[in-house]
Design a protein around this nucleic acid. Structure first.
Lengths: 114, 114
DNA sequence: ATAATATACCTTGTATAGCTAGGTATGTTA
DNA sequence: TAACATACCTAGCTATACAAGGTATATTAT
Protein backbone atom coordinates (compact mmCIF):
# COMPACT_ATOMS: atom_id res chain seq x y z
CA UNK A 1 0.00 0.00 0.00
CA UNK A 2 1.06 3.57 -0.62
CA UNK A 3 2.82 5.33 2.22
CA UNK A 4 0.50 8.35 2.22
CA UNK A 5 -2.54 6.13 2.41
CA UNK A 6 -1.07 4.29 5.39
CA UNK A 7 -0.40 7.56 7.21
CA UNK A 8 -3.92 8.68 6.42
CA UNK A 9 -5.25 5.64 8.24
CA UNK A 10 -2.70 5.87 11.01
CA UNK A 11 -3.31 9.46 12.09
CA UNK A 12 -6.83 8.93 13.48
CA UNK A 13 -5.53 6.05 15.57
CA UNK A 14 -2.59 8.13 16.69
CA UNK A 15 -5.01 10.75 17.89
CA UNK A 16 -7.06 8.45 20.05
CA UNK A 17 -6.75 9.55 23.62
CA UNK A 18 -4.37 12.28 22.57
CA UNK A 19 -7.35 14.38 21.60
CA UNK A 20 -8.78 14.05 25.08
CA UNK A 21 -5.45 15.22 26.47
CA UNK A 22 -5.29 18.21 24.13
CA UNK A 23 -8.85 19.26 24.97
CA UNK A 24 -8.20 19.15 28.72
CA UNK A 25 -5.00 21.16 28.20
CA UNK A 26 -6.97 23.79 26.32
CA UNK A 27 -9.75 23.85 28.92
CA UNK A 28 -7.21 24.49 31.65
CA UNK A 29 -6.44 27.80 29.95
CA UNK A 30 -10.05 28.92 30.35
CA UNK A 31 -13.66 28.10 29.57
CA UNK A 32 -14.50 27.55 25.94
CA UNK A 33 -17.38 26.26 23.79
CA UNK A 34 -17.28 23.35 21.39
CA UNK A 35 -17.15 25.09 18.07
CA UNK A 36 -14.41 27.50 19.18
CA UNK A 37 -12.49 24.54 20.65
CA UNK A 38 -12.35 22.88 17.24
CA UNK A 39 -11.10 26.10 15.65
CA UNK A 40 -8.47 26.59 18.37
CA UNK A 41 -7.19 23.00 18.18
CA UNK A 42 -6.80 23.33 14.44
CA UNK A 43 -4.89 26.57 14.89
CA UNK A 44 -2.65 25.25 17.66
CA UNK A 45 -1.98 21.68 16.49
CA UNK A 46 -3.07 21.52 12.83
CA UNK A 47 -5.42 18.72 13.88
CA UNK A 48 -8.81 18.97 12.25
CA UNK A 49 -11.33 17.57 14.70
CA UNK A 50 -14.54 16.34 13.09
CA UNK A 51 -17.68 17.45 14.93
CA UNK A 52 -18.76 13.83 15.09
CA UNK A 53 -15.60 13.28 17.11
CA UNK A 54 -15.69 16.41 19.25
CA UNK A 55 -19.19 16.47 20.67
CA UNK A 56 -19.36 12.83 21.76
CA UNK A 57 -15.91 13.29 23.33
CA UNK A 58 -17.03 16.34 25.28
CA UNK A 59 -20.09 14.42 26.48
CA UNK A 60 -17.84 11.64 27.73
CA UNK A 61 -15.73 14.15 29.63
CA UNK A 62 -18.88 15.52 31.23
CA UNK A 63 -20.24 12.07 32.01
CA UNK A 64 -16.97 11.22 33.79
CA UNK A 65 -16.99 14.47 35.75
CA UNK A 66 -13.90 16.02 34.16
CA UNK A 67 -15.84 19.04 32.94
CA UNK A 68 -19.08 20.88 33.65
CA UNK A 69 -21.19 22.74 31.10
CA UNK A 70 -23.20 25.93 31.01
CA UNK A 71 -25.34 27.37 28.23
CA UNK A 72 -24.69 31.03 27.51
CA UNK A 73 -26.98 33.04 25.27
CA UNK A 74 -25.54 36.28 23.96
CA UNK A 75 -27.56 39.15 22.48
CA UNK A 76 -26.60 37.98 19.05
CA UNK A 77 -25.61 34.60 17.61
CA UNK A 78 -26.59 31.05 18.51
CA UNK A 79 -26.50 29.94 22.16
CA UNK A 80 -23.14 28.45 23.15
CA UNK A 81 -22.44 25.57 25.50
CA UNK A 82 -19.37 26.46 27.53
CA UNK A 83 -17.15 23.79 29.08
CA UNK A 84 -15.28 24.29 32.35
CA UNK A 85 -12.66 21.89 33.70
CA UNK A 86 -13.30 20.47 37.19
CA UNK A 87 -10.81 19.70 39.95
CA UNK A 88 -11.06 16.04 38.92
CA UNK A 89 -10.27 17.15 35.39
CA UNK A 90 -7.18 19.02 36.57
CA UNK A 91 -6.06 16.04 38.63
CA UNK A 92 -6.53 13.70 35.68
CA UNK A 93 -4.75 16.08 33.34
CA UNK A 94 -1.68 16.07 35.60
CA UNK A 95 -1.47 12.29 35.27
CA UNK A 96 -1.88 12.50 31.52
CA UNK A 97 0.96 15.00 31.35
CA UNK A 98 3.15 12.59 33.28
CA UNK A 99 2.26 9.67 30.98
CA UNK A 100 2.83 11.82 27.93
CA UNK A 101 6.26 13.01 29.09
CA UNK A 102 7.38 9.51 29.98
CA UNK A 103 6.27 8.08 26.64
CA UNK A 104 7.80 10.93 24.70
CA UNK A 105 11.16 10.46 26.39
CA UNK A 106 11.15 6.76 25.55
CA UNK A 107 10.33 7.44 21.92
CA UNK A 108 12.95 10.17 21.71
CA UNK A 109 15.56 7.68 22.86
CA UNK A 110 14.51 5.24 20.13
CA UNK A 111 14.50 7.94 17.48
CA UNK A 112 17.99 9.07 18.46
CA UNK A 113 19.35 5.55 18.37
CA UNK A 114 18.14 5.03 14.82
CA UNK B 1 -15.40 8.77 38.35
CA UNK B 2 -12.05 8.26 40.04
CA UNK B 3 -9.03 9.81 38.38
CA UNK B 4 -6.98 6.59 38.35
CA UNK B 5 -9.82 4.71 36.70
CA UNK B 6 -10.09 7.35 34.01
CA UNK B 7 -6.37 7.12 33.27
CA UNK B 8 -6.65 3.34 33.16
CA UNK B 9 -9.19 3.66 30.38
CA UNK B 10 -7.35 6.48 28.68
CA UNK B 11 -3.94 4.83 28.31
CA UNK B 12 -5.05 2.15 25.79
CA UNK B 13 -6.59 4.87 23.65
CA UNK B 14 -3.48 6.98 23.96
CA UNK B 15 -1.44 4.06 22.68
CA UNK B 16 -3.47 3.50 19.55
CA UNK B 17 -1.33 4.19 16.56
CA UNK B 18 1.54 5.07 18.85
CA UNK B 19 2.25 1.39 19.22
CA UNK B 20 2.61 1.00 15.48
CA UNK B 21 5.09 3.86 15.50
CA UNK B 22 7.11 2.36 18.36
CA UNK B 23 7.27 -1.04 16.66
CA UNK B 24 8.53 0.43 13.39
CA UNK B 25 11.12 2.44 15.32
CA UNK B 26 12.32 -0.72 16.97
CA UNK B 27 12.38 -2.67 13.71
CA UNK B 28 14.54 0.00 12.12
CA UNK B 29 17.24 -0.92 14.64
CA UNK B 30 17.31 -4.50 13.37
CA UNK B 31 15.26 -7.63 12.76
CA UNK B 32 13.39 -9.01 15.74
CA UNK B 33 10.72 -11.61 16.48
CA UNK B 34 7.36 -10.97 18.13
CA UNK B 35 7.95 -12.25 21.59
CA UNK B 36 11.26 -10.41 21.97
CA UNK B 37 9.64 -7.27 20.61
CA UNK B 38 7.10 -7.29 23.45
CA UNK B 39 9.88 -7.72 26.00
CA UNK B 40 11.94 -4.92 24.43
CA UNK B 41 9.02 -2.47 24.26
CA UNK B 42 8.25 -3.09 27.92
CA UNK B 43 11.89 -2.47 28.81
CA UNK B 44 12.23 0.67 26.69
CA UNK B 45 8.84 2.33 27.23
CA UNK B 46 7.21 0.60 30.22
CA UNK B 47 4.35 -0.24 27.89
CA UNK B 48 3.08 -3.77 28.36
CA UNK B 49 1.84 -4.96 24.98
CA UNK B 50 -0.73 -7.74 25.15
CA UNK B 51 -0.10 -10.57 22.69
CA UNK B 52 -3.63 -10.14 21.44
CA UNK B 53 -2.55 -6.64 20.45
CA UNK B 54 0.91 -7.41 19.12
CA UNK B 55 0.39 -10.29 16.70
CA UNK B 56 -2.61 -8.84 14.85
CA UNK B 57 -0.72 -5.54 14.61
CA UNK B 58 2.34 -7.26 13.12
CA UNK B 59 0.08 -9.02 10.63
CA UNK B 60 -1.39 -5.68 9.60
CA UNK B 61 2.10 -4.28 9.06
CA UNK B 62 2.90 -7.28 6.87
CA UNK B 63 -0.37 -7.04 4.95
CA UNK B 64 0.38 -3.38 4.19
CA UNK B 65 3.93 -4.15 3.07
CA UNK B 66 5.73 -2.31 5.87
CA UNK B 67 7.51 -5.47 7.01
CA UNK B 68 8.43 -8.90 5.71
CA UNK B 69 8.70 -12.07 7.79
CA UNK B 70 10.96 -15.09 7.91
CA UNK B 71 10.78 -18.19 10.10
CA UNK B 72 14.03 -19.13 11.75
CA UNK B 73 14.49 -22.45 13.50
CA UNK B 74 17.42 -22.67 15.86
CA UNK B 75 18.98 -25.89 17.20
CA UNK B 76 17.09 -25.39 20.42
CA UNK B 77 13.88 -23.57 21.34
CA UNK B 78 10.66 -22.88 19.43
CA UNK B 79 10.84 -21.54 15.89
CA UNK B 80 10.80 -17.74 15.71
CA UNK B 81 9.13 -15.52 13.15
CA UNK B 82 11.48 -12.62 12.45
CA UNK B 83 10.21 -9.27 11.17
CA UNK B 84 12.22 -7.04 8.86
CA UNK B 85 11.24 -3.49 7.93
CA UNK B 86 10.86 -2.75 4.20
CA UNK B 87 11.74 0.42 2.30
CA UNK B 88 8.05 1.32 2.38
CA UNK B 89 8.18 0.82 6.14
CA UNK B 90 11.14 3.17 6.45
CA UNK B 91 9.43 5.76 4.27
CA UNK B 92 6.25 5.53 6.34
CA UNK B 93 8.21 5.71 9.57
CA UNK B 94 9.81 8.99 8.47
CA UNK B 95 6.34 10.52 8.04
CA UNK B 96 5.25 9.22 11.41
CA UNK B 97 8.31 10.81 13.01
CA UNK B 98 7.38 14.11 11.41
CA UNK B 99 3.77 13.87 12.63
CA UNK B 100 4.93 12.91 16.08
CA UNK B 101 7.40 15.81 16.35
CA UNK B 102 4.86 18.32 15.12
CA UNK B 103 2.19 17.13 17.55
CA UNK B 104 4.64 17.02 20.42
CA UNK B 105 5.74 20.59 19.82
CA UNK B 106 2.12 21.79 19.78
CA UNK B 107 1.37 20.01 23.02
CA UNK B 108 4.55 21.31 24.61
CA UNK B 109 3.44 24.85 23.84
CA UNK B 110 0.07 24.23 25.48
CA UNK B 111 1.67 22.64 28.54
CA UNK B 112 4.01 25.58 28.96
CA UNK B 113 1.20 28.10 28.70
CA UNK B 114 -0.75 26.40 31.48
C1' DA C 1 9.24 -39.10 36.04
C1' DT C 2 6.26 -35.33 36.34
C1' DA C 3 4.62 -30.92 37.36
C1' DA C 4 5.29 -26.14 36.75
C1' DT C 5 7.11 -22.39 34.36
C1' DA C 6 8.97 -19.89 30.37
C1' DT C 7 9.22 -19.30 25.55
C1' DA C 8 6.77 -18.49 21.19
C1' DC C 9 3.15 -18.39 18.23
C1' DC C 10 -2.01 -17.58 17.25
C1' DT C 11 -7.46 -16.45 17.32
C1' DT C 12 -12.18 -15.00 18.91
C1' DG C 13 -15.12 -11.75 20.92
C1' DT C 14 -15.90 -7.23 23.27
C1' DA C 15 -15.56 -2.36 24.18
C1' DT C 16 -14.39 1.97 22.60
C1' DA C 17 -13.22 5.92 19.79
C1' DG C 18 -12.66 8.61 15.40
C1' DC C 19 -15.01 9.62 11.29
C1' DT C 20 -18.59 10.07 7.62
C1' DA C 21 -22.74 11.76 6.65
C1' DG C 22 -26.46 13.19 7.89
C1' DG C 23 -29.68 16.63 10.73
C1' DT C 24 -31.50 21.35 13.12
C1' DA C 25 -31.41 26.26 13.96
C1' DT C 26 -29.72 31.05 13.95
C1' DG C 27 -27.17 34.91 12.04
C1' DT C 28 -24.69 37.30 8.31
C1' DT C 29 -23.42 38.50 3.74
C1' DA C 30 -23.83 38.72 -1.42
C1' DT D 1 -33.49 35.68 -1.12
C1' DA D 2 -29.95 32.64 -1.65
C1' DA D 3 -25.61 31.24 0.15
C1' DC D 4 -22.52 30.81 3.71
C1' DA D 5 -20.87 30.72 8.51
C1' DT D 6 -21.82 29.73 13.20
C1' DA D 7 -23.26 26.33 16.64
C1' DC D 8 -25.18 22.36 18.30
C1' DC D 9 -26.28 17.16 17.82
C1' DT D 10 -26.72 11.80 16.41
C1' DA D 11 -26.65 7.10 13.88
C1' DG D 12 -23.91 3.86 11.76
C1' DC D 13 -19.33 2.25 10.14
C1' DT D 14 -14.69 0.83 10.80
C1' DA D 15 -10.53 -0.03 13.16
C1' DT D 16 -7.88 -1.13 17.20
C1' DA D 17 -6.49 -2.52 22.06
C1' DC D 18 -7.38 -5.97 25.14
C1' DA D 19 -9.05 -10.12 27.73
C1' DA D 20 -9.24 -14.75 27.50
C1' DG D 21 -8.71 -18.45 25.41
C1' DG D 22 -5.68 -21.96 22.59
C1' DT D 23 -1.22 -24.87 20.73
C1' DA D 24 3.51 -26.48 21.09
C1' DT D 25 8.31 -26.84 22.72
C1' DA D 26 11.99 -26.30 26.20
C1' DT D 27 13.60 -25.77 30.80
C1' DT D 28 13.54 -26.11 35.75
C1' DA D 29 11.87 -27.79 40.24
C1' DT D 30 9.92 -31.43 42.92
Amino acid sequence: MESDKIIERWVPQFRKGLLEFIILLKLQQGDIYGYELAVEIKKLTSIEVAEGTLYPLLNRLKRDGLVTTEWKTAEIGSPRKYYEITSLGIETLAKMKSTWTQTHNSILNMVMQS
